[in-house]
């Protein structure tokens, strides 16, 4: 069972977002970059599958030089090799171009499954997975929280409004992974040492036939912070909790008209 796992580097979820000088992107000063949390579920599932069935995990990213840290992190957790498609700063949020670059890097690899996170934390598009599946002519299931593989078939669960869909598909297939699928492992010291010797294949995105200066399919006009909220009404409920409770219910009814 060979698995391809696509990952992306994103600002740590604890980051405070500030707007950069161009008014279109975030200010990257002081940002700590991490493997996008949903991609960790994809990697963990691939590691579990290859540990149980043999085969290799190849991790792929499309990003600038700093994204190599994300690949090394995945190699340290147990991935066997990595492909780094260099570029990606001009195509932030452009799911179609990102999927095209990943598809070009993956198409000649041997794989049974392609796993990605349901979305990159930050751009929050949740589009690269299904687009990549279409480009690689694979069936896909998105946002999975459970997975069983039986021979050449898989059964995956995905949460939708009001319940869960059970989806069945032949392999090879593409899966986008959601929280609940597994508990991602951390890298151990031994893994971190071993990762330094594992191969990372570097490819300039231009050599894959992607012209990043061509304008893509996603044009950012502006980025702004949400409007600041005025100070709320704070009631002191330590001495008379029942009184504060009654008052807030009255305010919600009469003032906010929320109930």
């Amino acid at each position: 069972m060979n698995c391809i796992v696509c990952v992306t580097s994103v600002p740590d979820t604890a980051s405070v977002i500030k707007i950069g000088d161009d008014g279109k992107h975030i200010d990257e000063t002081g940002i700590k970059w991490i493997v996008s949390p949903y991609d960790e579920y994809a990697l963990e599932e691939a590691l579990k599958l290859t540990e149980a069935n043999g085969g290799e995990v190849t991790v792929v990213t499309y990003g600038p030089a700093r994204s190599e840290a994300a690949l090394r992190d995945c190699l340290a957790r147990g991935a066997h090799k990595a492909i780094h498609v260099l570029g990606g700063e001009a195509t932030l949020g452009d799911s179609f171009t990102i999927a095209k670059a990943l598809a070009a890097a993956i198409k000649d690899q041997e794989y049974d499954l392609v796993l990605v996170g349901v979305q990159g934390v930050g751009t929050d598009n949740a589009q690269v997975g299904p687009m990549l599946a279409e480009m690689l002519n694979l069936p896909h299931v998105s946002g999975i929280t459970s997975l069983d593989i039986d021979g050449g078939n898989l059964t995956a669960g995905r949460e939708v409004e009001g319940g869960k869909e059970v989806v069945s598909s032949p392999l090879p297939a593409l899966l986008t992974c959601h929280k609940g699928l597994n508990e991602p492992r951390y890298a151990a010291l031994k893994g971190i040492m071993a990762a330094k010797r594992k191969p990372v294949d570097k490819i300039e995105v231009g050599t894959l036939g992607i012209d990043e200066s061509a304008g893509g399919t996603y044009s950012i006009r502006s980025l702004e912070l949400p409007p600041e909220k005025g100070a709320g009404t704070i009631l002191q409920g330590e001495d008379d909790p029942a009184g504060a409770a009654k008052e807030v219910v009255q305010l919600l009814r009469a003032e906010a008209k929320a109930i």
Binding site: P11, I26, V121, L223, E224, L225
Partner: peptide, 12 residues
């Protein structure tokens, strides 16, 4: 974007 920490205006 960033789960609502910011908003972006975009086109295709």
């Amino acid at each position: 974007v960033y789960s609502g920490k910011a908003f972006t205006t975009v086109d295709s």
